[in-house]
């Protein structure tokens, strides 16, 4: 698998241009795209799993206490989780603040 996507020689390709690693898109940092970042207030969170199930980018995962935590490496900042949160626990914060 080439290290840096976009700049490698054809000599590094596998036979038949095969990709040997499933799910290798996971290397791509789609978190670069966002301008707003969702932040969860764990005091208000009711663990309803809506942020988890409505996230198109698989950003949320459950921690040991049952809260859903963001992985900012992938979050594109669409804001669906903040809009759908029934407890208003998620707010969108400007990136860089």
């Amino acid at each position: 698998m080439p290290k840096e996507v976009g700049s490698f020689s054809w000599k590094e390709l596998e036979l038949g241009c095969a990709l040997l690693e499933p799910g290798s898109a996971g290397q791509l940092k789609t978190g670069d795209w966002r301008s707003m970042r969702p932040v969860t207030d764990l005091e208000k969170c009711v663990k309803c799993a809506r942020c988890y199930v409505f996230c198109p980018d698989m950003v949320y995962s459950q921690n040991e206490e049952g809260f859903y935590i963001q992985n900012y490496y992938y979050c594109k900042g669409c804001g669906i989780c903040a809009t759908e949160c029934p407890a208003d626990a998620i707010t969108m914060v400007e990136e860089g603040d």
């Binding site: 499933p22 799910g23 290798s24 898109a25 996971g26 290397q27 791509l28 940092k29 789609t30 795209w33 966002r34 309803c48 799993a49 809506r50 988890y52 199930v53 198109p56 980018d57 698989m58 950003v59 992985n71 992938y74 594109k76 900042g77 669409c78 804001g79 669906i80």
Partner: peptide, 21 residues
């Protein structure tokens, strides 16, 4: 909703637009 499969056959890092349904 409480007991969804954890498995994700589609990995994150795909290039869909923000908020793609």
């Amino acid at each position: 909703l409480k007991k969804l499969p954890v498995e994700e056959p589609l990995s994150p890092g795909h290039r869909a637009c923000q908020g793609c349904g």
